[in-house]
Write a protein that binds this DNA or RNA. Structure first.
Lengths: 217, 217
DNA sequence: TACGCTCTGTGATCCTCTTCACAGAATACC
DNA sequence: GGTATTCTGTGAAGAGGATCACAGAGCGTA
């Protein structure tokens, strides 16, 4: 199984961005600031220009599942934009970030003038659904070690070093901090990664891919 | 937590259907027939007119997760329609069924003529994403008994009797047949359901709702 | 430099679900 | 009607994570 099968590409948004451009307003977030909470009412569609954002969902119990880290160029917030209602996730700035956004009314109007915008948005929706579908499959079918391998590979796709505590990583995988620690220690002993406080350096990507694929339940 | 919070409504498709109507071709499936397999290439968008279909995803190991049973009026197949590529799930007819479908090219053309069609499709996408988001949350945050309660309530929403073996139900919840059997037996002893071979009759919906909500991890 | 906080590693125990096994009941089919 | 098949219920054993507990290491900061 190739890596691209796992990394659904949400980055080819140039066409979409140029189509959106005229409808966008600007916005800045400082590090740690929350853009919106799960269950907020808000129908804006966003584009991240600079910085990094975290997408997460929260259980009533307070438990948190981190879904993704958004990089510049990402378009997000489609669910409540396409189907007005509550937000299904929380978006929080990991660092100071600059974004732009469009309101629903503006875009509906833009779509009537330019049908290409509509089909670009539909394709965006299709890609996001593919990505969500894979998240669900992974969560159901992959054991914790494979999920951890998948997330580690994903998070290190642009840089072999991941700046994240093991506790944060555990929130991505949906397991306890202790289990992440044990698995990472095994990987360190196997020469797959190098560990230090708050950092994981990936040494052997293909080894991790094997780990990810070899243990399907 | 209300039940409607759980049952994302995908049924309000009258507007969409009337907009689609002119672009549709007909199709029939006999009981047990597969419309398409996961990973097939196919870019059609479907509407179910009569019958019942099962949506499921399969792991490489052969394990299966059932996602939904589609009822007449349901529109489905959006992912590969909006973002051409492989199917993310398998669709199989549970009984003899009649459906209609549109090809991507036909609809893109239809959208340029009628912008309302585009926004109806976007809303459909938004609703489907909401539904997927909830599936993922439930899978991660709810323990097996709560998930079973949620699925049982969902499957019995139009008829208090569910015609399904415990093994099939287990495929919906993502646990073993034995665990489903044990939980259902507990529920029977508590007066929540009535059990017979291949059937589950729900006696106490609010009791099941409590079960669903009371055990979040 | 000393103190305090956060992060990491790991043992021990508990708990839940899976796996395996099997028996009895219901249904389908000769 | 009798036999085979499928479904259900349940016990017993096993595995894999969660939880609890704690110690040491790294880092910020007073």
């Amino acid at each position: 199984m190739t890596e691209s099968h796992y990394d659904v590409d949400l980055g080819e948004t140039d066409t979409l961005l140029s189509l959106l451009a005229e409808n966008l307003e600007e916005l800045r977030l400082s590090a740690g600031e929350t853009l919106f909470e799960q269950d907020d009412f808000d129908d804006r569609l966003f584009v991240l220009d600079t910085g990094e954002l975290e997408v997460s969902v929260l259980a009533a119990s307070g438990r948190k599942l981190s879904l993704n880290r958004l990089q510049p160029g990402s378009v997000f917030g489609e669910i409540a934009f396409f189907d007005p209602g509550r937000r299904t996730a929380r978006i929080k700035a990991l660092v100071s970030s600059r974004l732009r956004f469009a309101r629903q009314a503006a875009l509906l109007e833009g779509m009537t003038r330019n049908p290409k915008l509509a089909s670009a948005l539909l394709q965006l929706a299709g890609r996001r659904m593919r990505w969500m579908s894979r998240q669900l499959e992974d969560q159901v079918f992959l054991p914790p070690e494979s999920r951890l391998a998948a997330k580690t590979l994903h998070l290190s796709r642009s840089d072999s070093e991941i700046a994240m505590s093991q506790a944060q990583l555990a929130d991505y995988v949906g397991v306890t901090r202790e289990l992440v620690s044990r698995i990472l220690s095994d990987w360190r002993r196997a020469g797959l990664v190098e560990l230090s406080r708050g950092r994981i350096r990936v040494l052997d990507r293909s080894g991790l891919m094997e780990t990810r694929d070899s243990e399907e339940v």
